[in-house]
Computed example of a mutant assay.
Amino acid sequence: MLSSDTSGIYRSWNMSIPQITKPSKLYNLEPIGIGTPYVESLTSYICRLAEAHSVRTGTLVLEEIIPHIPKHYSVRNGKVLYNNSGAINSCGEEASSKGTIIKILQDLCQRKDLSLLTMSNWKNFISLNSLHYTNRRWCPFCFEEWQTKQTTLYEPLLWKIKCLDLCPIHISLLVEKCGNKYCNKTNKHLGGNISIGFSEHCNGWLGIDTDNKENLKFNIKDQTNQGEFICSNLVQLIPIPQKQSGVKIKHILRRNILFLKEKINNQNLGDEIKKVRILLNNFLTSRSNLSLDSLLFICSTFGITISQLLDQEVQKVSLSNYCVTNEKKRINKKETY
């Protein structure tokens, strides 16, 4: 006689409807360098996305991005968007036209990490005003190395920051004009015919130009300590907001600035400290964020790094060197009279 218990014979079936991921209209292209100091910029990502679809950058922008921008924004005009394309890399509020471009691309590509390709995650602790450079800039040595190694060409977010003039890897000046003597034009961050590693105007290679190679070598050897200081600090800055929230960073920054303010209260330490004291007081008494230049000036004056200021404790900061330095300046000033 057959047993009525069939549980050991037949498997149970899961009849629930599986979760189906929404298909993306455009390729789910992986950004380069997320979590590192050399993360890709959003305008670079747009150019690579167009290349992945075998279309001009202008075609992608005009047919896929602009139609999704709300009608009341002026950047729905392609020329206006191209002329202001540098701001795409430093976009702030989600409600802004540049913030909307992040959302549009994330929907089209079904990604959630494209804000990390901009400076928008800095908005809680750094003023985004005048943060980006107007024209496209690049390091010819980086392009040349990447092409030689057959790695993907791209433009790091670092190259888009206004106060950065040097490539942190080669300590050479970033270039903003095509090396072709018959072209010698600047490029916007986005354009109809723009392609990574090549001039928008003449399609000339932006790597090392043999006619200009000696001048580039000279640039490497002729840099100031200030330029290298900015390089090293921006390399430290880029990954911080990729790993923790801007609100937490601002909390750490405020705590450290309170400590630094107490450190220099009622001390006569010279003109630089006086300027810093004004910056610290303004930050603590107002709701506005400090500019990146101001943060770097504070770091330079106190002899700390931007990662210490934004991500660590600064209670071990010593001002003894600055007391000596400013005393020497005061003595030298007297001797000149």
Rank of each mutant, 00 (worst) to 15 (best):
N14Y: 14
K188I: 00
M1G: 06
I20A: 10
Q106T: 03
C47V: 03
A52T: 12
I101Q: 05
N321H: 11
K221C: 09
H72N: 12
Y38N: 06
E200G: 05
Y10Q: 02
H201C: 03
H189F: 10
W138Q: 03
K22C: 12
R255G: 00
S120R: 15
G33R: 11
K275Y: 07
I230H: 13
L114E: 05
G207P: 11
Q223F: 04
W13N: 04
I46V: 07
N121V: 04
H201N: 09
I20Q: 12
Q308S: 14
V175K: 14
V80R: 09
V175E: 10
F283N: 01
L81H: 12
L131K: 02
C231P: 11
K213N: 15
T325Q: 08
K103Y: 05
L105F: 15
K333T: 00
I69F: 12
Y82S: 04
F125M: 06
K248A: 02
Y27N: 02
L29P: 02
N326M: 08
M119K: 10
W146E: 11
D311L: 11
E262S: 11
E63D: 15
N233S: 05
Q267R: 13
L310W: 11
E51H: 08
S195Y: 10
K334W: 03
I169C: 04
S16A: 07
C202K: 05
L237M: 08
V39P: 02
E94M: 10
L116G: 04
N212D: 14
T224R: 03
G227M: 13
K103D: 03
F141D: 05
E93V: 13
A52V: 13
E313F: 15
L290W: 12
T336A: 05
K71R: 11
V235N: 01
Y73A: 09
Y182I: 07
H53F: 08
V55E: 06
Y182S: 12
P18M: 00
G35S: 09
T224E: 03
S318G: 08
Y45T: 01
Y82M: 08
V247E: 13
A52P: 10
D211Q: 12
L60E: 02
N14T: 10
T134V: 02
I66E: 06
S300Y: 15
Y133F: 07
R56S: 06
G227N: 13
H72S: 08
Q312C: 13
L108I: 10
Y27M: 06
K274T: 00
L253F: 09
Q150N: 15
L166Y: 11
L206Q: 12
K162H: 08
K275W: 04
E145G: 04
Y73V: 07
K177G: 05
D271R: 02
D209A: 11
N89Q: 08
C178E: 05
P31K: 14
N332I: 01
K160T: 06
L280E: 00
H170P: 01
G78K: 13
N281A: 03
K334T: 00
K329C: 01
C202L: 05
N28I: 08
H68D: 07
I102H: 04
